[in-house]
Nucleic acid binder design. Structure first.
Length: 424
RNA sequence: GGAAAGGUGGCAGAGUGGUCGAAUGCGCCGGACUCGAAAUCCGGUGUACGGGCUUCCCGUACCGUGGGUUCGAAUCCCACCCUUUCCGCCA
């Protein structure tokens, strides 16, 4: 959520900032809501003040045993007017709030303007795609040859966009997650956390807009609970409705969890294989920091995600997303894209975003600064990394002509010393 | 799932209709005392929104959440949520 103080103080800056991401801010609607709010609030608070002071008088008179009927009559006259104003004010604040909560974040100044993924900017590239002396298969065929990827059984169980892993492939999948968690906790200082895989609507609306994106989530029937689309949902909400001590910052968490996404609106996209699934595993890294540290923390967090790709020796590039391709809550996002030989292209495997105060404001996450004043925190998170897509990348990049797949060096110890998955 | 008890400030804990945003203690901050510290003493110490002559003052709201009763609700009524204990069930 944007800072309403900023909207009041410098509306043109907000309009211009949102304009960069192609969002038209309805100034007229906002101004009229604000004007009405001001009138109603002033009027309501005046009436409340009057009622309070008259009621206190009644209390004092009764204490002395004096007659209160005159004051009672006076205060009774306020009743209907006051009630009407209170109801109107509450309704208006509800509208103002709803209005504000569906407005996306303002991109940072260093985010390039653009309309779509085509306008994203490559900021660096690492590794050289392997030259194959045979035609590389895609991960579906590689997995099938290993007897480890079974989409038919998954479809029988749950329909499209699910997968069943078996044998060495299932073990490799587990190894990847363990490896990610170990790197992030042991080398980058994140605290490992285990969390609920369902969160309340309130928490969901803290990290994004539930009103706008609820069709992307799986909801539990008859309950105010949603399956998490990323561990960002529970983990960022650790600090909801709280005021942290500056000495406890920054907070850094790493969390392995399954992620559930309805993938509404992605019909026909990535239908083959496990690129786009309703359920996938991910290790998420989250940082909660004071505002003056968020830009640096965002760069650091991105490098933490890159570090695991380097260790896996998977070629990737880092893209700075343009204003038009960023998520709702983000002020600046880097996507890491891993090389997939069968597609002959780079595909997203991590997304690292700085939300600045946007999520924290929605959640009521604050800290007490050096001056002792409460201030809104900044939140940052990224995938470190997506486990399923990493499996895909390994199967494709490490495949052999004989149909086997080599296990990346750093994962071998997680596989009981296994150096390769044999064909058949 | 059944029964009971309970949810109050950073923490503990008082408050069962009227100057209660809330006693008291602890903690924390500032000051005094001290060479320094401890102890002691004095003062201060919630959040959000609105307004103002904007290091401060004023108003409003907030005692789990949402409704209701009342001139007035932390206090009474209703619903819900959560916690604890006991019983049942269960990986």
């Amino acid at each position: 959520m944007l800072d309403i103080q900023l909207l009041r103080k410098d509306l043109p800056a907000v309009v211009a900032g949102l304009g960069r991401r192609g969002v038209v801010f309805d100034e007229t609607a906002f101004r009229s809501l604000e004007d009405e709010r001001k009138t109603l609030q002033t009027r309501t608070e005046e009436l409340q003040a009057k009622r309070n002071s008259l009621s206190k008088q009644i209390g004092m008179l009764k204490g002395k045993g004096d007659d209160t009927s005159a004051v009672m009559t006076e205060v009774a006259g306020l009743g209907d007017d006051l009630k009407a104003n209170e109801v109107a004010l509450a309704a208006l604040q509800e509208r103002l709030n709803a209005f504000l909560r569906v407005i996306p974040n303002i991109p940072r100044a260093d985010v390039p303007a653009g309309k779509s993924a085509d306008d994203n900017v490559e900021v660096r590239r690492w590794g050289t795609p392997r030259q194959f002396d045979f035609t590389p298969k895609d991960h579906v065929d590689v997995g099938a040859a290993l007897g480890g990827l079974d989409f038919e059984t998954a479809a029988k169980l749950s329909g499209a966009r699910f997968s069943v892993l078996k044998g060495g492939v299932a073990r490799l999948h587990r190894a990847i997650a363990q490896f990610f968690l170990d790197v992030q906790t042991q080398e980058h200082g994140y605290t490992e956390v285990y969390v609920p895989y369902m969160v309340s609507g309130e928490c969901a609306d803290g990290v994004s807009s539930l009103a706008k994106f609820k069709e992307d989530l799986f909801k539990i029937e008859g309950r105010d609970l949603y399956l998490i689309p990323t561990a960002e949902y529970p983990v960022t909400n650790f600090v909801r409705d709280s005021i942290l001590d500056i000495k406890d910052l920054p907070l850094k968490f790493a969390c392995h969890s399954p992620c559930f996404r309805s993938e509404a609106g992605s019909y026909g996209k990535d239908t083959r294989g496990m690129i786009r699934q309703h359920q996938f595993d991910k290790v998420e890294v989250v940082q909660i920091v004071p505002p003056d540290q968020s830009a640096d923390a965002h760069e650091a967090l991105t490098s933490h995600a890159e570090a695991v790709l380097k260790k896996l020796e998977l070629p990737f590039r880092t893209m700075l997303l343009c204003t038009g391709d960023m998520g709702f809550s983000s002020a600046k996002t880097y996507d890491l894209e891993v090389w997939l030989p069968a597609q002959n292209t780079y595909r997203e495997i991590s997304s690292c975003s700085n939300f600045e105060a946007f999520q924290a404001r929605r959640m009521g996450a604050r800290f007490r600064n050096a001056q002792g004043k409460t201030e809104t925190l900044h939140t940052i998170n990224g995938s470190g990394l997506a486990v399923g897509r990493t499996l895909v990348a390994i199967l494709e990049n490490y495949q052999r002509a004989d149909g086997g797949v080599d296990v990346p060096k750093v994962l071998q110890s997680y596989m009981g010393g296994t150096t390769s998955l044999p064909p058949g």
